[in-house]
Structure formats: structure tokens, C-alpha cells
Amino acid sequence: MRIDRISFVDDVDTPEAAIISCGKLMLEAGLIKPSYIPAMIDVYHQLGAYMVIAPHVALPHASPQSGALKSGICLCVLRNPVIFGHSDNDPVHLLFGLASHDGNSHIQNLAEVADFLGYDQNITNIISSKTIAEIEYIFMSKKGEL
């Protein structure tokens, strides 16, 4: 499982602002072109909170043609959670921004991240982390994989 970049964000209070923060991280990591950020917001506006895939976890993404340069995932941890409008999984604390340039090469990594998120304790542990090092440790101690 590989997370390209991790960052804490304290000052967002809307889903759009949260997606933009995550998008900036993905931009810094070289995963996307700037056009990918409004594309992720469009997906949210068109389809709503379905991208909140687990309790407190959103997976913002857009199609490969929207400006994805590489396959990868960045994690944005919101210090103040945001309501996305999901009937069960709000509020959102964690955004795993996903990009795939070919619609294919991200699958193995995404599968491992999904597996990791399948354990509620992992989500709780990341939310309560205070530093990036703590989060990296949680990823690393995940059953010896990384």
C-alpha cells in the first residue's frame, strides 16, 4: 500500500474546500494537472456523497481524462470534520484523493487501501493521530505490509 503524500488541514468547512485541499496535495505530488481539481468537485456536485465510501472517509476522484498524470493516492486529514451529506458515513475526517492516468494501474494500491479501511480501528487511529509520523506508523504497522 502506497500513499504518495499526507497532510493535515485545519481551516476547511465545506466539501468543496476539503476536495480542493486534497487536490492541492495531489498536484504537489505530481499526480494530476490543475484541471483535475474542479473535475473532482464536479463529480461531487453531480453524484453527491457516494464518494464517502466508509464511515468518515471520502475518496474524491475524477476520470483519468480529467487531468490525471500518474496513478496515486494522497491523504488529507481534516482537523475539523466536514459534512458531505451522506446518510450514514458523515462527517468526513479523511480524504483519500485518488488519481489514475490509465484507469487501471491504481487498482492494486486502491485494493490495499480499501482492505486497510475495512478495519474501523485503522480509521479511528488515523483520525486521532497528531502527526504525519504517527499516521505513517499506522500504515507501516498494518500487518507488516507497505
Partner: peptide
Amino acid sequence: VCGCGMGSSVILRMN
């Protein structure tokens, strides 16, 4: 089914 056919639906297929 998901929005783009590359995110949540891929997770769904795997599970």
C-alpha cells in the same frame, strides 16, 4: 456501479 467506474466500484468488485 460508481461515478467514474474506477474508484468505489473497483473496491466493490474486489470485496
